[in-house]
Structures are given as structure tokens and as C-alpha cells.
Computed example of a mutant assay.
Amino acid sequence: MNRPYSRSENTGLISVIHKTLKKGAPNIIKFSATKRHKTMTNILICGFGSIGQKHAKNLTDMGASLRIWRHRQDQKEAIIDAGYEFEPSLENGLDWADAAIIATATDQHIAPATLAAQKNVPYYMEKPVSLNTNGLQELEQNSRNLPIEIGCQLRHHPSLVALKHQLTHHEYGKVLSFQAWVGQRLDEWRPGSDYRKCYSADTTRGGGALFDLVHEIDLMTWLVGPMDSVYADLRHNSDLDMNAEDLANIILSADNKAAGTVQLDMLSPAYRRGLQIICEKCVYTFDMKEGILWRKIGSDDVQCIAKPDKNFQPADMLKNAVEYFINRVKDPTIAPRCGLEDGIHDLHILLAAKQSNSNKTQEKIRKTL
């Protein structure tokens, strides 16, 4: 899971447009937004909630031919009114498709993904993989040798790609400790919609801070390495009307002995998102809002290591992730950015965290199905 960084991972995602090489000055890498190309790939999108609609718009812009399947057949008119072709049969849709996007609610991921794999159709699955391990072994067995990507698009932020490169090459020693955090009130996530009716407010559908904000946990497994154990405290502290925790405090220990914390919340009155990686010889700090990666050596030596081009938008990460998946469908030799194995490891962390919260104990993280 903690694969060496490869040039193929970066193909078609970001381009270096400027690098300062003045003697005595920090090397600052600025990244431009992805230069996109048109494709006529046939893609079946499974699900048409907020994320499914984003995928539909992005793939239309990329030139893909789309059909939309949704478990709830009563959404046919909404899909047609939005300008897309409604597909009533999942099986027929997969027979037509070159690739599939699994964008259903988390508790409904496994069935369409398994059918896609059985039909040898590559798929991009939204995070997390599932709510439990039911059907996971069959999915994994059927998905072998297929280009699969899990929707952890923060792995496509250019500054975090630069951080991954530096950490992989141990430029400033091994990782000793880490922190990651994200927070914003749930009722501010989707303006114009009732947060109480969305899956994010319902733990039985994959909602709650732990599962819905898994990106930060995934980033730590990508940047630091596979995790060995977890201790978690999950609670509901706000006035939000939801059937799920709105705060998750997590302590993680990695296989390589690094340890750190991840805090996930749906209650913060101001949006916040970032991380810090402590190595033997420096401290890396990243704030999502500004998008800049900083490196601090000693007390006063703070350097800007990487930042996106001025045209870069956070929404580009989702576009980049899906385009990367399409590139892998066309060229299966390209290494996965976040493959099914990574997604399953993330799920095992989530399930161990839930167990830890229930038992009030540190829990080991499963390594196999």
C-alpha cells in the first residue's frame, strides 16, 4: 500500500510550470490545473446523488458517453430532466459500459461493483468501500487484474503529491509522528438541501464523521504507511439533528512505528482542513484552504515547497481522480493511485475504530479479508 512513487502516477494529472532554483533559496514547485483531453469512453454511473451528479458533469466535459442507473427507479424523470440517459437495468448498463462509477450510498456499493467485476468492467468506487466486510472477499476476488480506483481524491492534490514524493524518498529522514484534521458543520455542507435527509446524517447509510470524512485517514495511510492499531473516541457533541457521531478523535499507530492523531468533525463553525508530518529533520505543514506545502527546518527556516497554480480549484481533485481512472482503463499498466487494496485497508481501520469506541480499548487493524 505504501508503494514507491512512480512517474506513471503523475501522468496527465499535473504539470510543473515553474521551479525556482536560485542558490540559497527554497525550491518552490507550482502546479497548473490538469490539461484535459477528450475521450469517448462509455461510462455507466451508478447513483445520482450529489457526488453522482458531479461525476456526470465532469465526465460530460471530458467527452464521455454516459448512462445513469439508480437503485430507486422513481428518479428516472430527474435524470432525464438533467439531460442524461436513464438506464433501467444495471446488468444491461454494464454490458454497454467500458467502465463504471459506483456513486451509490455507501451501504449499496458492493452489489453493483461485484457485478461490474464479474462482467470484467473496470470501476471507480466512491469512498469508503463499504460499511462492513460483507461480500468483500467475493468483490476482491472478482476485481483482480482490473483497473480499480477508490475515490480518495485528496491523493490528487498537487501539493500532497509533492509531499508524497519527498516522504517516499526520505529526503529529511523517516516519519516519526503525524496529525490530520478536518471540520465543518454538516448543515453547511450542501446549501439548499436538508442535511437531516442526507446519508451523511445517518450512520446506517455510511454517514457520521468517521466514515464520511475518511479522506484524512486515507491520506495518513498513503503518506505514512499501513496502520497497525487504532484507538477511537466517537461522540455527538453538537445541536445537529443526526443519527451519527459528529466528532471522531482517533489515535493511529503505523506498521513503521510512526504514530499520530486524526480529528474528524461535522460541528466546526468554520471550515478547517490540514495536516502536519513530523520527520527526523523537518516538519511538513499543509493547509487545504491555501493549498501550500511548507517545510520547517529548525526554529526559523520555513520554506514553501509546493503550491498549485492560481487556476487550480479544489474541485479539480475529483476531476483529476476520475481522469486518472480513465487513463488506467485505457492503459492498465499505469499504477493505481488508490486501489481496492488501499480502500479495504481504510475500511479495516474504520471498523477497528468503531470497535475501539465500543470497547474503549486499542484495537489491532486487520491485514487480510
Rank of each mutant, 00 (worst) to 15 (best):
A232C: 14
N237P: 10
K289T: 13
M227R: 12
A270P: 10
L293Q: 04
I278T: 13
N256T: 00
E280Q: 01
Y199L: 07
D212Q: 15
V283P: 01
I292S: 08
L275D: 00
L240H: 06
Y271P: 08
D218L: 03
D239K: 05
A270K: 12
D233E: 15
D202Q: 14
V262F: 07
T261W: 10
V224I: 05
L240I: 06
D265M: 09
L293N: 01
S268K: 08
L223E: 03
E280W: 01
K257E: 10
F211A: 13
A258T: 02
V224E: 03
A258D: 01
R272F: 09
Y199F: 12
I277A: 01
L293R: 03
I250M: 08
F211R: 15
L247A: 11
L210G: 04
S229L: 12
A232M: 05
P226A: 08
V214Y: 11
C282Y: 03
Q263I: 15
L210F: 03
Y284M: 04
L252H: 12
L240D: 02
S238L: 02
A209N: 08
D194T: 10
T203Y: 14
L240C: 02
M242T: 06
A254G: 07
Y231A: 15
A248S: 07
Q263M: 11
G274S: 01
M266P: 05
I250A: 05
I217M: 08
D239E: 07
A244V: 01
